[in-house]
Lab assay of single mutants.
Amino acid sequence: MLDDRARMEAAKKEKVEQILAEFQLQEEDLKKVMRRMQKEMDRGLRLETHEEASVKMLPTYVRSTPEGSEVGDFLSLDLGGTNFRVMLVKVGEGEEGQWSVKTKHQMYSIPEDAMTGTAEMLFDYISECISDFLDKHQMKHKKLPLGFTFSFPVRHEDIDKGILLNWTKGFKASGAEGNNVVGLLRDAIKRRGDFEMDVVAMVNDTVATMISCYYEDHQCEVGMIVGTGCNACYMEEMQNVELVEGDEGRMCVNTEWGAFGDSGELDEFLLEYDRLVDESSANPGQQLYEKLIGGKYMGELVRLVLLRLVDENLLFHGEASEQLRTRGAFETRFVSQVESDTGDRKQIYNILSTLGLRPSTTDCDIVRRACESVSTRAAHMCSAGLAGVINRMRESRSEDVMRITVGVDGSVYKLHPSFKERFHASVRRLTPSCEITFIESEEGSGRGAALVSAVACKKACMLGQ
């Protein structure tokens, strides 16, 4: 009897593995994704193909990295998701002549009506938060230079001027797309009239992360975010950046690689679950690469896999709870928690219980395998993109072996128990001629924006502006 049951459990697990095998990517698959990513990057950089390229390769006008001589107080704003952060950054000489960066910050959550109302409502709310922060720190009387981390696709015309191309991540505030974001912020500050600010720089969160990590390690020339969304930036040779005049030196390019796949480059790798996630998203047909990796989508992918296993009578005796059938019910943090389970399955059992399920031991094991399959594919897909960037940098610099540091931020990278190990191992397999160091950014977005502002202020002083 026991043997029969054991055989049935083994057969069930084997069927589960057959279904989950769809998520496995072979090294040849990853090399294919990497080569296609490089081709799209090239198209994004070139003037004649930029418009139709899915990977936009947006110039950021960040050319210099901090040298350690900029000092002063800077205000930093960070808008990239449902939370908005205001930070005071003091850049100065530390002990023994070292450079020191001290920060104080406060988080504000953005109400739904500000995210989806008008641009005026959104930026009025942001300036209200700045006003509140300055009151708390008794700094209303000071006109501070301000660095703005704005983590949406922007076409820069200068370091302090950028046109919002399109909202992502659930934002829909009308009247912002096609307009200068810094102008919208300046107008809102003017409307309030109770404080003055000098907006000197606007950067993407990947750029802010790279600059913040450069402060720790001067070989950091790539910034990457794996959180709600997924994106990367890197220092490109100016001669390859056709959208900006000049051939000397390097400029940081914001790849906006989340949109890779929007022209069909990933079609052969998309599964039924991916198509369902895409169809029910706020932007169907867009940001397809990001939807395979980002935390906004990972939990939902797992939920759809679990429903398939229920329908195949391989999980929960073929019956799903009402909660499990509800879109968004299986949160991405559950994926991390399930994979963090120590082996007694308590954590998995508790999560499934909150979803109205009474799982068996085998159910718990199957749910864990589903989570591992989805998150491992995410790590491997992400590795193909980064390997594409790094191999490109090595080739354009004609280096036999390139040493490089990548600064990384984002909740999936930082909080998932195995993502970074799987990701690092896969990147290294795909970049055999590179020695890569990964560092995690601390308060990256805010500190990085302030350091970019410090560079901009120093330049302005040198130019006598």
Rank of each mutant, 00 (worst) to 15 (best):
E216L: 14
G44V: 03
N204C: 06
N283E: 03
D158K: 04
R275H: 09
H416N: 08
H156W: 01
T103G: 08
L352M: 07
K291D: 07
K12Q: 13
A320P: 15
G388Q: 10
V367S: 10
W167Q: 01
R429L: 11
W167N: 01
V226C: 05
D247K: 14
V406E: 05
M41W: 02
N391E: 11
E17H: 11
S426E: 09
G444E: 03
G407Q: 00
V452W: 04
E331Q: 07
R403Q: 09
L144Y: 09
A176E: 07
L355H: 02
D198I: 10
T228Y: 00
L415H: 08
E331S: 14
F171C: 00
V406P: 03
L266H: 13
R191A: 03
L47C: 14
L307H: 08
L309S: 07
G388H: 07
T255Y: 01
A456V: 15
S64A: 14
I366D: 14
K291G: 05
E14K: 12
S375E: 06
F23R: 05
S433D: 14
D198T: 14
M238N: 13
W99L: 15
V86Q: 01
L415D: 02
R7M: 14
A450I: 02
D365R: 12
Q219I: 14
Y125K: 06
F171D: 04
T361G: 07
V62L: 15
S336V: 07
Q18L: 09
R394E: 14
R63G: 14
N254F: 03
S353W: 08
L430A: 06
L276R: 11
F171T: 00
A454S: 08
E322K: 15
P66W: 13
M393E: 01
V33G: 12
D113V: 11
V338S: 12
K32A: 14
A449C: 05
G285F: 12
L45Q: 00
S373G: 10
M298H: 13
Y61I: 02
G170Q: 01
K39T: 08
M197G: 06
G261A: 05
L146T: 05
V200G: 05
Y289Q: 08
E196A: 10
L25M: 04
S109Y: 12
M57S: 06
S336R: 08
F171I: 05
A6H: 06
G94N: 01
Y349Q: 08
L415C: 13
A450F: 00
V305N: 12
E395F: 11
H137Q: 13
E48G: 08
E443I: 06
V277A: 06
I225W: 06
V86H: 02
I366V: 11
L355D: 02
A460M: 15
A119G: 01
R63Y: 14
M8I: 07
R308E: 13
L79A: 04
R186C: 01
K172A: 10
Y234E: 06
M139H: 12
C233Q: 01
E272Q: 02
T354I: 07
G193E: 09
L352N: 07
M393Q: 10
R397C: 10
A329Q: 15
I211K: 07
T342Q: 09
